[in-house]
């Protein structure tokens, strides 16, 4: 393990992959709030969320050498690993079972709300908001219910009356659209770096 102090402006994961112990801990400073907030939303209770956060950070450190700054941002890499671990965990431990009572007035993310995002997340938030703004109301609502609230495809169909196949299509197309915007953002960055 080396002891070089990481710069706050640099990516941490390449340093983690090199065995920098300060970078290992700095990941907690930089991404702790994001990972904790994701875990709190997806886990059943604080104890479960704490276990999940530990599992996520160990996974991030172990996979640090897979992070390629040319391909995407570190925060996206972290969020992707966090969500995958959390989804695995939800499947392993089980979702909280649901009954048939559907509250169609459930709280939704207000895309009109344009509060300033934390600097660390600004690019990702901009892409997410731009992508959601391009979708029609039904598509946006389905994506928010799936990713924001964690509802299964079946429950979304049940809650909204939208056919299950259409729910799947909305989610698939929404994700593909966001992926396209991420690619565009990367291309812009690459051009900016070349200029």
């Amino acid at each position: 393990m080396t002891t070089r102090q990481p710069n706050a402006e640099t990516d941490l994961l390449p340093l983690v992959a090199q065995g920098d112990q300060h970078a290992v801990k700095a990941c907690l400073d930089r991404y702790g709030s994001l990972v904790w907030s994701l875990a709190r939303r997806m886990c059943r209770n604080t104890v479960d969320a704490e276990d999940a956060v530990q599992e996520i950070f160990v996974s991030i450190w172990k996979n640090a050498d897979r992070f390629d700054p040319e391909r995407g941002s570190e925060v996206t890499f972290v969020a992707t690993i966090a969500r995958r671990r959390l989804i695995d965990r939800v499947r392993r431990i089980g979702r909280r079972p649901a009954e048939s009572t559907i509250d169609t007035g459930m709280p939704m993310v207000d895309t009109a709300e344009q509060a300033e995002a934390p600097a660390l997340l600004r690019d990702e938030v901009a892409v997410a908001r731009a992508a959601l703004a391009e979708l029609n109301d039904e598509q946006r609502r389905v994506l928010q219910m799936s990713i924001g609230l964690g509802l299964s495809h079946e429950k979304i169909a049940e809650a909204t009356g939208i056919p299950l196949g259409t729910v799947k299509t909305h989610i698939r197309r929404g994700l593909i659209r966001v992926r396209g915007m991420i690619e565009d953002q990367r291309a812009q960055r690459a051009r900016g770096a070349e200029a």
Partner: peptide
């Protein structure tokens, strides 16, 4: 998965 991660960030930021 990355796309879903970005959307999740946007919804939780």
């Amino acid at each position: 998965d990355e796309a879903a991660g970005v959307l999740a960030i946007g919804m939780i930021a």
